[in-house]
Simulated scan of single mutants.
Amino acid sequence: MKYRNQIIGALASVLLMGCATNPFTGKKTLALVSNSQIFPMAFQQYDQFLSQNKVVKGTSDAEMITRIGQKISKAAERWFNANGHPEYLEGYKWEYNLVDDKTVNAWCMPGGKIVFYTGILPIAANEAGIAAIMGHEVAHALANHGQQRMSAGQIQQVAGVAGSIAMSGKSAAAQQIFAQAFGIGSQVGIMLPFSRSHETEADKIGINLMAIAGYNPEEAAKLWVRMKANSSKSGNGAPPEMLSTHPSNDTRIANLTKWAPEARREAAKFGVTSFK
């Protein structure tokens, strides 16, 4: 009991100290690891990834990825300046690369390092579709979702240790049951919803950024209609939402459809009233 209380007390202290504020929502977020530590590691890993993969250079598609990425990051800069956070992007080093790979995916590392795979381009279908994806990925970086996930992983480890210590006087069978239950419970009950909330948040931020950049926010929902059709066509059925790191396609389509008018109003604040 003594050790358990000490660990729980230490964990509570860490949580109180290791917080930041999300500028988009005003909510407190986990920040047990600073961006000054995370960014250099992310940049190194990004460079290593590029050195080990076929980066597409000099094509119209590669140039399009860079052009749209720059528009989205410029929209983010405008948003931060207008909302009283001109210093927020300090340390970010935006980079956009197209990689020759049939995988239907795109991702962004902390600090603004983005990769699009060629496999996602047919589903993106047009510049607005790429802007919807780009806005989503840029949003992950801006909301520090990588930082939050690393912090949550640390807390999960500490909580597991605390639970194991609390169970130390129990039978081996009881300890095994706890370990299994904690693993499943923390994943399904905490980590997966945590990931889904990040995806939803990135969708919401991203659709605003694409609109501020001059792209029709209604295209975001259309993108996910195509994503859903591609999943059905390829036979890659998604798991139930509660067992997934991402919201379901239908949830995303409904959310993005609902948010499109809001994104148009947000863009109008920056003088953007016509869209591609």
Rank of each mutant, 00 (worst) to 15 (best):
Q187S: 15
E137M: 01
V55M: 02
Y96K: 01
N53I: 07
N255S: 14
E266R: 15
I65Q: 02
V33S: 10
E266Y: 05
T251Y: 02
L89N: 14
N230G: 04
S186A: 03
E127T: 14
T273N: 10
L32R: 12
I38G: 08
N249G: 02
A31T: 12
I8A: 15
H140T: 05
S231P: 01
E266L: 12
G185K: 00
F43E: 15
I253A: 06
A141I: 09
M17R: 09
T118S: 13
E90T: 15
L209F: 00
S248Y: 04
A174L: 06
M227S: 01
K28I: 08
A10M: 09
Q175L: 06
F275P: 05
W79D: 08
G235R: 04
S171R: 02
E63P: 02
G135K: 05
F24D: 14
A141H: 01
M17H: 08
P217Y: 07
G129H: 07
T245Q: 09
S197V: 13
Q52K: 13
K74Q: 14
A141W: 01
G111A: 08
K222V: 15
S274T: 15
K2V: 15
A181G: 03
Q45F: 02
R67L: 08
V56W: 01
M41N: 12
I68L: 06
A238F: 05
S168N: 09
V272W: 02
I7E: 03
G129D: 07
N230T: 13
K269S: 05
A159E: 13
G18R: 03
L192C: 10
A268W: 00
I207E: 01
V104Y: 05
A211D: 00
Q187A: 14
N208Q: 15
A76K: 01
I212C: 11
E201S: 11
A172F: 10
G135P: 02
A12R: 09
V158M: 15
A10W: 03
L243K: 14
E241I: 08
S13D: 13
F182A: 05
N216W: 06
A179Y: 00
N236H: 10
T66E: 14
A124E: 03
I212E: 04
R226D: 00
R226N: 03
F270L: 05
F178W: 06
I133C: 03
Y46K: 02
A141N: 06
I177W: 00
L142N: 08
Q157M: 11
S232F: 04
A62G: 11
R149Q: 13
P240L: 10
E90W: 00
W224D: 07
F270Y: 14
F270D: 03
S231Y: 08
H198T: 01
N97M: 10
P86A: 13
I207W: 01
V161Y: 09
F194I: 07
K170P: 01
A159P: 07
M210T: 02
I155Y: 04
L89M: 15
H140V: 05
M134T: 04
I190Q: 08
D47T: 07
G185F: 01
M242D: 11
S232V: 12
S60D: 10
D47H: 12
K74L: 09
V115Q: 00
Y46F: 11
E201F: 03
S151G: 09
R196N: 13
N216I: 11
E63L: 14
M227H: 03
K113M: 05
V272K: 08
L256K: 09
T103Y: 00
V115E: 00
N35S: 12
S73Y: 06
H85C: 12
N255Y: 03
F270W: 02
R252F: 04
